[in-house]
Amino acid sequence: MSIFADIENPISQETIMDLLTVKNVSKQYVGHKALDDVSLAIPRGSVYGLLGPNGAGKTTLIRIINRITAPDSGQVFFGDRELSPDDVYRIGYLPEERGLYKKMKVGEQAVFFARLKGLSRRDAIAQLKGWFIKFGIQDWWNKKVEELSKGMAQKVQFIVTVLHKPELLIFDEPFSGFDPINANLLKEEILSLRDQGATVIFSTHNMASVEEICDHITLINKSHNILSGNVDEIRRRYGANVFEVAYRGEEEALHKAVGERCEWIDGSQSESVYRTVKLHVRNDADVRAVIAAANEAVELRSFHEIIPSMNDIFIRAVNGKL
């Protein structure tokens, strides 16, 4: 990429790293605003979580990225230029609703979709067989889709979505309808796709999965982007200076040593010879001093920060308590 090209380019050099950039996008439906001035940037090669309560506008955003609908205002950039109709061929999309032809056989249908995505019939069959074996569903090849359960149908759809190795993968609630074993299988596949260079956008309200696989998130609530960033950073940023202390010794002694600088959140619990307690270290207090004082008073086994779960952050953010 030459420097001169970038001068005229609306996107600055540093954002070129981002595969997809959404700039000030708004979308108005009759009666309500689905998206209001939403901006976000999705780094290349990351798993990007799109979070938000039901009806927040996640699906609308995904549909704009897929060019199913057009935004009223704002722009979407794919790499360094504006999203064009042909870019949809570089996207693999797994919608939340299961969209397969009910009367068609699984194998035939998978080959049909694969061919639409540019694979030859022979390649499609060869690759599909591999995926079917990996997912343990070889026996389904000649079954009709209407015979499959929801989770089964979604496995097929997942395979069809990723088969042609698109640069950008969009999964809308991919884990709904899956048992834990299959959800895990899917999770690993998503991560391995990322490791092979794909960028993944992934919309969900399952917060546990966010912590496990997302690198970055955006939280959309009531059509606004209310929180964006790296998952670890966000969790640290919204960490509340809460520590869990495990120790052997007198509760009284510990309390006396750190009591002025800390707030006791949970009462002392006793597990065999150790006790644990949760402390909130006051903002002006020095954590090292607290540890030193505690170490004097009792025999410390551990002293570590409790990082809030995404679930907590989600609930607090949505309720406006951040």
Binding site: N66, P85, V88, Y89, I91, G99, Y101, T161
Partner: peptide, 16 residues
């Protein structure tokens, strides 16, 4: 039928 089964959303990334 195609509209209701949402097949289209799957295909939208490969077909106009």
């Amino acid at each position: 039928e195609e509209k209701n089964s949402r097949v289209l959303e799957v295909m939208v990334s490969s077909v106009r």
